[in-house]
Design a protein around this nucleic acid. Sequence first.
DNA 1: GTTTAACCCTGCACGC
DNA 2: TGCGTGCAGGGTTAAA
Length: 280
Amino acid sequence: MPELPEVEVIRRDLEKEIVGKKIKKVEVRNTKNAMRAIRRHKRRKEFEDALAGLKITKIDRRGKYILTHLNGKILVSHLGMSGQLSLTKASAPQENHTHVVIHFTIGGQLRFVDPRTFGEMFVTEKGELGEVKELQNLGIDPLEQALTWQYFSKTLEEKKTKLKALLMDQKFICGLGNIYSDEILFAAGLRFDHPSNELSSQEVRRLYRAIQEILQEAIRFRGTSADDEQYKDLYGALGEFQTQLKVYQREGQPCRRCRTPVERARWSNRSTFFCPQCQV
DNA sequence: GTTTAACCCTGCACGC
DNA sequence: TGCGTGCAGGGTTAAA
């Protein structure tokens, strides 16, 4: 499932590929799930007409949201669990669960494919972006300069919650999901259920550094394609960070550091993977 | 304030 | 072979 690194890889590729292009027309499939994909719009036509004829000027990212800037408008996309943006020729066969197709004037298409329909797309006026609640609530992006050591350690101290809950809390820092929070906690040598306000300053520092390092590495490897729902980039290629995973989905396999079998715990309706020896 | 569970959904693995 | 069941997960919301 796409988390910050995957979304950032897609953002960078979109920036390279579609900035400057003009949208000829947009097609939303006439299916229940396609309507679910654009659920903030009452009618397909409203979404389609909002984008037709506009030129793409910039691609931004906030947490796991991709913001495609057009003249006066912004197309907001969230890939949910199984969403994929795919850049193809118009002649390429259409995959199952393709909900939205954006046609460019110079040819080629951007398709939104999402089997589990947790993802969505919507169009907003540029001036109204600040009113989108989900974006308002997002915390600091961990790759931005604004995530300072001071803010990070102060929040950990104040929150008094389990570390994994905090890492996955999009209102604190945005973009981390199940895979990267597990990998970050392993890299920092901390357990998922360690109380956030009971860390030494050295441990806080390790965690802070692990966030930056794991995310940068994952972007360098073009994201993780670990699950049955394999993440694919804009061109349909898989990421390669799964070869680097230390604990995620490695239950029963020896820890890469100490050989102790990796354990899996059920926490808050999610699986969490950790080394009982290396993480305290 | 924090934690848990349910909800939305589909594909897949599994057992019978 | 085929059916039913459980599970996976992101984000939100309601309840505990």
